[in-house]
Design a protein around this nucleic acid. Sequence first.
DNA 1: TTGTAGGCGTTATCAT
DNA 2: ATGATAACGCCTACAA
Lengths: 350, 350
Amino acid sequence: MVTRRDVARLAGTSPAVVSYVLNDGPRGVAPATRERVLHAVDQLGYRPNRIASSLRTNRTMTLGLVVPDNTNPYFAELARAIEDVAFAEGYTLLLGNATDRAERENAYIQAFLDRRVDGILLIPSHDSVAAAAELARTGTPWVLMDRLLDLDGVPAVVLSDNRQGGRLATEHLIGHGRRRIACISGPRDVRNTSERVMGWRDALAATPLDPDAAPLREVPFDRFAGYRAARDILTRHDEIDAIFVASDEQALGVMRALGELGRTCPRDIALVSFDGVAASLLTTPTLSTIRQPVAALARHAVARILTQREEEPAPVETIVLPVELVARGSCGCPDVSDGVDYLDTEHEPA
Amino acid sequence: MVTRRDVARLAGTSPAVVSYVLNDGPRGVAPATRERVLHAVDQLGYRPNRIASSLRTNRTMTLGLVVPDNTNPYFAELARAIEDVAFAEGYTLLLGNATDRAERENAYIQAFLDRRVDGILLIPSHDSVAAAAELARTGTPWVLMDRLLDLDGVPAVVLSDNRQGGRLATEHLIGHGRRRIACISGPRDVRNTSERVMGWRDALAATPLDPDAAPLREVPFDRFAGYRAARDILTRHDEIDAIFVASDEQALGVMRALGELGRTCPRDIALVSFDGVAASLLTTPTLSTIRQPVAALARHAVARILTQREEEPAPVETIVLPVELVARGSCGCPDVSDGVDYLDTEHEPA
DNA sequence: TTGTAGGCGTTATCAT
DNA sequence: ATGATAACGCCTACAA
């Protein structure tokens, strides 16, 4: 391994000077020396050892991200957005998949802490975070994403306006003349989900349906669960003419169920879901959905961590970003029927 | 920050002994002392600093993974499988999204090398890997995954039997009585793709179609490209009655195109695709596909890296794993039509 | 069985 | 402007 020493020797100077050149400071270096150093670095193919540097500076230029399930397209897209902004800031991302299990979530947080990451972004799998105390103890900057939590000492939360999204979706269905609107939502111990349900209830006030008696299923965030819930609702409640689904993933399963039950979307059952993942453009009909501002969420979360490093106080704050209804085919709006629109569609999250 | 020193002081012993206890060696510790140390560790909530440890031992217990696009479900599932086995071995995964760009792929490899990861798993975005030389120079264990490469000094490659897969898929379509079978494949500079095309050509020998003249489109690995290619083929070649699509992602776009063009799948156009991602279970009809052995690929790749660390010689090897045809609705086999099968389906990769 | 000390490759301070 | 040198926290060979 080639170290700074070797470079210094070849350039006829001292190791410290090599650092000054490579780090542009904290002290100046004579142009001639600088030149010799740069040349030696090049010749030897020297690359500073970031481990040693981290030990010394207490910075790893690494961020840790824990997601409930990387295989879920929404988290995949969010992770990618986060990685993009982290990369642009010179950071590398450690990734942890909790696979929806608390122990694993915890194990990852510990692993990240042990590796002295500069910050942790956490999308919690459940309503509580076992490692929260540990997190607070070490003083590592962290933010909670996507979901609220009943927890003291959370420095910051970055999420979408879930309630507003649920309301927008449901109101839009009402605008299409639907009055019997069911809801398929995520597990009850995930807070963003109950917010979406509240939005749905808010909007239901304008319909004959009793918000407290309307069909509601709280099931896991995957297609299979969505599929099952839809079959269950539709076989029991014949009057239903629309469903608000709390995630695109679940909506995919719902569409499959509609097909099997001989119901046509949107004619018999209209649908609006939540998230706005790329896959929502590929169903038939295309999925109307509440788009979450993925890129903006990522930007805020990373920015928050980075500033937290520098300044001292770190005021507690909750950042709620607005969502947007994307009306396509599944709600009854015109579908993108001839490839033209479809071809030109930019599906980069805003 | 609490260090080993603090623990030693509280336990009334020396820092070295603390290490011996925590690492189970290399020397024994008297039971009584061990007890006191463990107690002190617990009381202080001490966690060893892995940065310091890494500097000393030259091991980071971290692996780097570079994928072309984490948003592609196949890579997401593969990444997850890799992470699973790495985690089980006590390793944490650094994730790099190349977003299909060579500079970014390169930047990530460099970033991983600088962080002294214990090994790198690389799914190359293109036909060449700029950082290959660097990789060889540092001696960091690495494996190539998913795609072959014309490259000297690649220590190991782990991939599926792409050609066999292409053949299986096409032969199955022929078994359904199809004779005019087009192919939508990945970009030409991605090698696994051309293998799949070769398999398709192999099987075409049993049909009236001239393998060299049969409709073939080589387009990017995303739905939109698949969509466009399908429209293009179907509007030009009226005789086509089946398509072998080189990835599930592209097949999703193909299905959308079929719908828009008024062709029914599988009646008018039968489809078999490649990868076997979870999403292939949710289309209507469900997608017949060549399933890649994701978990096995992950196991082999990680195992290879881990053994490479320990032993010296590291013989060059190419590990080709067999694929499997999953016959569902899109090829003309019975679809999973009433939820029962569907509900019980285990879609965990084998 | 236990304590001491050298060194991993940096960074940054202190003299020169 | 530059050269030496003391940490950073841990591991382990060596001496006691």
